[in-house]
Design a protein around this nucleic acid. Sequence first.
DNA 1: GCATTGTATCTTGTATGCAAGATTGTATTC
DNA 2: GAATACAATCTTGCATACAAGATACAATGC
Lengths: 229, 229
Amino acid sequence: MQEQDKTADRNPHIIEDRIIRAALSGQIAPGERLGEKDLSEIFNVSRTLVREAMMRLQARGIVEVSPRRGWFVIEPSVEEARHTIDARRALEVGMLVTIDDIQPAQIRILREHVLSEQQALASGDRAQRSYLLGHFHVCLAETLGNPVLGSLLQDLTTRTVLIAALYQSTHDAHESCCEHGQIIDALEQGDPTEAARLMDVHLRHVEKALNYRHVSNRLEHLKAALQAN
Amino acid sequence: MQEQDKTADRNPHIIEDRIIRAALSGQIAPGERLGEKDLSEIFNVSRTLVREAMMRLQARGIVEVSPRRGWFVIEPSVEEARHTIDARRALEVGMLVTIDDIQPAQIRILREHVLSEQQALASGDRAQRSYLLGHFHVCLAETLGNPVLGSLLQDLTTRTVLIAALYQSTHDAHESCCEHGQIIDALEQGDPTEAARLMDVHLRHVEKALNYRHVSNRLEHLKAALQAN
DNA sequence: GCATTGTATCTTGTATGCAAGATTGTATTC
DNA sequence: GAATACAATCTTGCATACAAGATACAATGC
């Protein structure tokens, strides 16, 4: 982790960026504790900078604080998970239906992104796979020319990845990747309405997995297990 | 400002909340400087807490920092303004088209909100008027049952109020209030598609009322003036 | 008068110290 | 042995001290 020191210097947002990327990559689990002291040692800075990064991540809905106990990566309840996915649906569907035109250059960028997704799928790099499948939505917003939407979607996508009940199998990942391709197809054919419909379906597939609630929250899991017996 | 001490105690988010509310009320102008020392005296806390609040507001896109110069309320460029309003349109239109049903109790809450807006209009309380007209959109999202959307809209709406102040919006408050009522009418009649269309129109009115030529940013204004000559 | 240099001051950037709640483990008491 | 009390430890909460860049202004030199 010493290689960080060079790049970390002089970038006050490096801590958040790393945490977001790790979460998107599935390398940080929901409910995971992020101790100020641990992070300050990892990034070789004082607790002050760690704390400031945590404040920003808190405002972005990625971490929560339990007073005098510690910082924890969010562990959305099923209800919160639905709200997050619903918000994404509203945002992404709204984004697609309000497109007026799209350039071939934009299509190319999106195609390349899906190509990377396919490569990650083929190579078996699960972290890269998880990251790219989530990042597609950010890429879409930014390619369509709206960084505000991109930034909102980065946070919502990260929160979606952190929904514990949504374990993504390799099969699901393939399906997601295909659906990304179909959305681009619709955009290329100048049919944003169809693209929006496909996005709606895509997100419903994600949400559907919530119905088979398996509770990975340790406390909830224990409670459920004990109530069952 | 001493009355704050009682309510401020034990609420770590009071600083941000007050700043957001002041911005929504039009009492804080875009570009306004928010000095850490000033705020720490106003809220009677150390700079640490002020800074932490600033970090959260920064992540929410309400303030920016100029290194070793100070914190400033955002002054969105024309392009950023467009992106913000476009993001709102996507979010709010998407939110309305994905409604499946709405209860009379929800309609009642929204009607009461518009009633408050009308009272503020009649009373001539400009701060309250500005606040309520912006807060309607947050209220709508929350009434529809999605606090995630509500929170996103609070930030986007705050930014929109700042944009309107920056570009000397000529938007008529009465008209806004009427349009809010019409959106509720459509919802009450079980026609979310029409509600979404009205929301689209509403936000287009907001954007249309902006005078993108009027740049109240001092530097930009100067630059534009000198280039023109 | 004008430019420049230096200096005082103001601002944020960062680290550190201490307070205080939360947790864990141990000893004590019955 | 079980429950309770207590102490050691770990964590964040908050304030403060100092560093260092930015700014404004006065002094200086020409």
